[in-house]
Amino acid sequence: MIEARSLTKRYGAKTAVADLTFSVRPGVVTGFLGPNGSGKSTTMRMILGLDAPSSGCVTVNGKRYAAHAAPLREVGAMLEARAVHPGRSAFHHLLALAATTGIPRSRVEEVIDVAGLRKVARKRVGGFSLGMGQRLGIATALLGDPATVILDEPVNGLDPEGILWIRTLLKSLAAEGRTVLVSSHLMSEMALTAEHLIVIGRGRLIADAPVAEFTRSAARDVVFVRSAEAARLAALLAGPGVAVAPGERGGIDVTGLASERIGRIAAEHGIAVAELTPRQASLEEAFMELTRDAVEYQPTGRYAAGAAQEGRAA
């Protein structure tokens, strides 16, 4: 169980995490979702006590992480960058960390096998591929047989086989009753792995809900309409709760009206419609919709409109 209360982190004038309150329950995989730079990694570092909150607090199983006598037993973590000295072998890296709490050598060998690193365990980490590095990070996280597992972007750099392995591993860990918090900036990945979602943007909480509920509430139906008189039709459709945006091939994307209703309005005003297509917004679009205002690095200028349109068309 991880509990954050009004967690805030400021770096000078910039607020990386703002008044974040959430809890992560054991037994399910919780996805920690947000665009790049939204404060996910900062939050994870605060959970581990690596960064001190500017205000608020976060506890793991009721205590600050640093207050636990056997910290590796409480939380196993893999943070964003590879937290490994490249000159050391995977085995010695794990052995050094294990030694602090008297974790025996046999346990080091166990996690090497679990992570599939047996063949490269004695090689210097500097020569590892991105995927091998991720596997070592996961082996490190599992070292203390922890009640809580925190992984920052674990699927980055993994091949499809590796991604499937991570998904299965995360679900197994949760099924064993552990608390599992996994960050990602990919909604599609979280939809497959997580049962619960915590979504943040610009350091603020946007959603804290089961995946199914999040999808239902966030995914809004869009109707794509193409017509020679698109502009006139757009004006006729306008009303409260209705949004009209330029779509591909000179058409318009209408949100907030059913396709039947759009067709009837067009017919009543004698507007010929070339195409009328209801479309369910994908989860990815729902996520982008939710976090649009919260994206840290917005494209601006010449390519901004094009990028937005492509995002819509995708």
Binding site: A69, A70, P71, L72, R73, H92, L95, A96, L97, A98, A99, T100, T101, G102, I103, P104, R107, E110, V114, L142, G144, D145, W165, T168, L169, K171, S172, L173, A175, E176
Partner: peptide, 27 residues
């Protein structure tokens, strides 16, 4: 579901000790 068995290390874990940290730094 085909789970991945993570062997438990129960009962074999101690607390952080200065001796342990010294051994870790030696490694």
């Amino acid at each position: 579901m085909s789970g991945i068995a993570v062997p438990a290390a129960a009962g074999r874990l101690g607390q952080v000790t200065f001796r342990g940290i010294v051994r870790s730094e030696w490694v």
